[in-house]
Each structure stands twice: as C-alpha cells, then as structure tokens.
Amino acid sequence: MSMHAPSHDLPLMFVEAGILAGEVTILDNISLTLNAGAPTVLIGPNGAGKTTLLRAAMGLIPVTHGRITWGGNETAAPARRAFVFQRPAMLRRSTEGNVHYALAAAGVPHGQRYDRAAELLTLVGLDGFGSRPARRLSGGEQQRVALARALARDPAVLFLDEPTASLDPHATKAIEDIVSNVAARGVKVVMSTHDLGQAKRLAGDLVLLHRGRLIESGPAAQFFADPRTEEASKFIAGELLI
C-alpha cells in the first residue's frame, strides 16, 4: 500500500445531520468532525445508530436533515473511502477473484492487479488462500477478505462496522492487528463496536451514541478516565443504557 497525501475526504463533518425513516428518528441532530489520525471508535448499545452513522459517512444513505461534508465538499463520490460490513458478502469467486474485483472497481490497471492482490492477501494473512472459493472460508477469513477488498481501494478513510462481532478471540486479534497496522500507515479508521475492550485497545477518539443522539465524543483516554455524562459513566461501568 502506498502512503498518500491527506485526502480531500477529510475532515469528514456531520453538521446537524439527521436521518428519519418514516416517522422514526434513526440519527438525531449529529454534529461531529472526523480528522486524520488515530482510529475513531463508535460505541453504544444496539440500535444506537452506529451502523447508520457509518453508512451515512460512507455516503451510502443520504441524510434527511443537515448535511455531511467530505473535505468541505457535499458531493459523495466515495473514491477514497472503503467500507467493511458487519456481515460482508463474499462474491461468488475465488478469494483472489474477490480482491481482483475490488482492484478493478478501484481503477487499478489490469497489469498491476496480480501483484497488488498478492500484497493485500499477505497483509491480511491470507497467503495461500487465493484460489479457494471465498464463500467457503470461515467467518474470520471472510472478514479478512473483506478487509483486503476494502484496502484495494487504497482508502483515505476505512469504515468498519462491528468487524469482530461474531469472531473468536484468535480471529478478533488477527483483525485488530490488521486494523492497527492499517491505521499506522495513515489510513483514517472509523469503526463501530460494542466491545469496550476493543474500543480501549484501538481507539484514538471515542464517540458514544444512544438512541440516535451523540452523547459524548473525545479522546479515548479522557473518555474512559473522566466521562462527562451520566450515560457514558453507566456505559463504561457496564450498565444497560435504556
């Protein structure tokens, strides 16, 4: 992977952004700025709006109120953004074929795809898996294929939605290592989790969502040491937020 100049996708700003589905408020008046740097981790109970916020940030769903800007622009062409879904769908191709497809979609010239694919598969620890049908891989392996596909876009911002939600500790560790590695190379990682331990291990910044509202955001160390809101304290203490 090449290093690149700060992308025009950053800073990514939510300005009083809201999303309504019919009568139901999914996101409510969110103002948030995501800057280059260490990973930003979204936490909050199920249904808090984490996935919706990630999708809106990717540009997959439009906001119904307010706006989102990418490097100051409201156009949403996701050329330098990539997304790993909570349950990524594997294309009905080989592992290598999945990565090739993503490289082609990202406009990588045909002649370079073989080397790039091999590089990416090595990065996610799938050496030797290239010719295996992707749909027959384990959940953790599929998650890594999805990461390789996302990285094929050479993203400035990488969104990960609960990337380790259904994985065993071993597979979780592997994914976390890749995420740290990628972040260290200058990619802005924005991910959701409801594993507080994972948030502690990976986060530079933390964002706590509850019922579609942004409760608290800031540097992770400060968040854990000195939460400013009652919800944050409860969440850190492991109590249910209702």
Binding site: L60, A82, P88, A89, L91, Y101, A105, R153
Partner: peptide
C-alpha cells in the same frame, strides 16, 4: 446479497448487471 458491497465499491448500473449475471 451484493447490493451493499457493490454500492461501497461504487459500481455503476452496467457493471452491476455484468457482475450479477457473471456471478
């Protein structure tokens, strides 16, 4: 099954059809 992934990879309508038919 593919909808989200193809959207995230910014695949246009023609590419979508080709991908789905091929896969």
């Amino acid at each position: 099954e593919y909808r989200d992934e193809l959207a995230a990879m910014n695949i246009g309508p023609a590419g979508r059809v080709a991908t789905l038919v091929w896969d």
